[in-house]
Design a protein around this nucleic acid. Sequence first.
DNA 1: TGGTCCAACTGGTAGGACCAGTTGGTCTAC
DNA 2: GTAGACCAACTGGTCCTACCAGTTGGACCA
Lengths: 264, 264
Amino acid sequence: MQPSVPSSSPSGSARRGLLTERIARELEHDIRSGEIAVGTKLPSERELAAQFGASRNVVREVLRRLEAQHLIEVAPGRGSFVREQSSGQARGYDALYRAGRPTVRQLIEARIPLEVEMVRLATERATEEDIAAMRAARDGLESATDVVVKAQADMEFHDAIAVASKNPVLRIMLSSIGGMMFEMMLRSNSDPSIGEPGVPHHPEIFEAIEARDVDLACARMREHLMLGLRTYGADLDVQVDTMARNHIETLLGQTEGRRTSAGR
Amino acid sequence: MQPSVPSSSPSGSARRGLLTERIARELEHDIRSGEIAVGTKLPSERELAAQFGASRNVVREVLRRLEAQHLIEVAPGRGSFVREQSSGQARGYDALYRAGRPTVRQLIEARIPLEVEMVRLATERATEEDIAAMRAARDGLESATDVVVKAQADMEFHDAIAVASKNPVLRIMLSSIGGMMFEMMLRSNSDPSIGEPGVPHHPEIFEAIEARDVDLACARMREHLMLGLRTYGADLDVQVDTMARNHIETLLGQTEGRRTSAGR
DNA sequence: TGGTCCAACTGGTAGGACCAGTTGGTCTAC
DNA sequence: GTAGACCAACTGGTCCTACCAGTTGGACCA
């Protein structure tokens, strides 16, 4: 028999590397949420280690991970810096993004044809594995409490559908707007009005896909996406990045606190 | 003043972390190329360290990086395993592109919902300027003789529609597959069978947009794109890049252009 | 045969040490 | 006074040793 990938026990990746995982998530959260501004120099490895009560080894591994995620940039002899990435790690489209400065309404408008088509194909073509991936992402969103984690799970669900569509081109297109989607989801997932009754969300969409009901899946995806048109209100015609920045400030305002500036 | 991100000298990230970088690249290559099969258990950290003549620290940082790239999975007490890539959601465009290797058929399949939506919006929203840009691109294609120039004009026409749609998100998505589209157009525009009678091309699409006939414009765009499904024949299920390479070689005549591939 | 148990192995974490760049301030020479 | 040399402090890169907690498989006993 062939060696099999560890079945990644349910608790597996959660329990694993407790310390490293925790610190990585914390830093990742602070960076993604904008709490640590772009361009800021992080404390030195030794300092971070002391701050988190961990060894320098652990901190270095965390930094390596963040670096692989393009969240930071590490310069020997100088330090680590938060990297620009909010909406673009892809190449050429940065300029486009900045030039266009899409609004929430435009993002929704563009996602509809793309994601409806994706879900159509996915409903026809999804394998058991694809279904499992979607289920996992759905559960991940349900059980998450942190906004960033929620947004990640949200992204994963939509990406899982892209994978299931068996069309890499669709997935590339989806990923090209991933940054914007993420920013939008940061807000969506902290908005109570998304609980609006009768609106189909991941579970309902997933259900339709699993039942292989193409029309239902498409309809639910469309409704799911259109919900934003009703709930975003005044933010609908605000640039996505602007809205994200404002929203993050609001979130931080509620939990305010530390914000340690490393003055020395 | 705000601290600025280090200007990341060209050689910067190349010179940095020589050892870690080297080992990471080597392992990454071996995994991506399939030299190390999926599911395989990597040697233990201590073993890898000895093998590469590096310390365990370095190896661990490399593994952390590969893990962040979803290339491997690390299980405490058991070891590290090469992870299935297709179903894993890798972030980043190249990973997507390389993993997916879209075919011509998939490219067409994905362009249809995107471009039909674009043309729908463009027909409703295009300004006089937008119309002028489209007209220019149409004329450019008509008058061009060189294949490359033709392909460029072709791209311009579709991009002009994207601009006219007044939705920068759609344009970003279009641009994210621009490379593939260009490769495909290199061939389309040197194929005599595109002259097939009754098939709407740029002039007909442009005409419908100018006449503000939404349904007609959508229908013509759809037909225009679907033409490829009939004319590409055997190439339909060939990877776009592969097809482009083959086709370009044909174009260049068989004598020349032995592309030097750096074997190591 | 079936279960227990232990030894070997694996990754996770700690903490120390040294090197080679980078940086900013001091001190010297002009 | 200023330009330049120079040095000390700091930063990341690498190595090493040690110990812990799971995992695994085989030896051993009931």
